[in-house]
Design a protein around this nucleic acid. Structure first.
Lengths: 139, 139
DNA sequence: ACATGTTAGTTGCTTGAGCAAGCACCAACT
DNA sequence: AGTTGGTGCTTGCTCAAGCAACTAACATGT
């Protein structure tokens, strides 16, 4: 437990620092972009985005502000609901996300996977998912 | 990896929320107090505290401000170095820390350990320590 | 059709944390 | 002793994120 709490404090900062150094994206920006990029048509409702990125609506709203300002996403009215907005990944956004993906993968490898040792990845990943989303037992 | 990043986003908030609900301490406050309580004489230099809690000096300085304001620690001049300050746990601090410890343990059990399944705790803890402090291979 | 309630998203305010600049003290050389 | 450089801690500023309050649009009952 002790080691877990330390991990929770240290690792996010390392990953974020690497990403910020290599790209102009924060870890938050990056994960939001990843979610958008994986949605059909590379577009996603703000609310779903908030759920996916485990952030509040206001948080997402401001992240999308930033990303829009630097041209990586656009806001478009939701076709089926006049209140809703979709965040839509632009070409530049896709390009920049791919670059960031490379950087992030290298960083993750260096900080995490190189230290794993004899850990059983599958069972740990399962456990992590249960911890993060306990109400959804194993969908 | 995906599951790990989600864990890093979600778990700290859960643990912190539980602690804040049950006590008047944030997770940061709690971990700082734990470190102080484990030091000899329940006193610890600010710098060491910063290292232990994986925070910046300015961060620690403000946490100790808070804790001092509510009477859980005192600041005392370091005996051997006129620049240094020790954070010293008070009786009230010890008491309140113990209460928080109980709450935190229950919370950790509910959120984490109940979901672990067939994970080998020892190897995972080792791996986490290596990830958090890679320069200290296994002290 | 209209009034009421509910949901999607944004904005004002506050809080917590880091960086950089500053201050106080130590250490080492002359 | 005096100066010069390095260390320990605090403080001003900035930024990211959440909550609460608000607006706009849907949905439902009459």
């Amino acid at each position: 437990m002790r080691s877990l709490t330390r991990l929770l404090a240290v690792l996010p900062r390392k990953l974020d620092a690497d990403l910020v150094r290599e790209t102009r994206l924060s870890a938050t920006d990056y994960f939001v972009l990843v979610h958008v990029s994986e949605a059909p048509d590379r577009r996603m409702r703000m609310t779903d985005l908030a759920g996916g990125a485990a952030m509040s609506m206001s948080g997402i709203s401001r992240v999308v502000d930033r990303l829009q300002k630097i041209g990586l996403v656009e806001r478009e009215r939701s076709p089926d609901d006049g209140r809703g907005w979709d965040a839509v990944l632009t070409g530049a956004g896709l390009q920049e996300l791919q670059d960031a993906w490379v950087a992030h993968l290298a960083s993750a490898r260096a900080h995490v996977f190189d230290h794993l040792g004899e850990v059983d990845l599958d069972s740990v990943a399962d456990a992590f998912e249960r911890i993060a989303d306990p109400e959804r037992p194993s969908e």
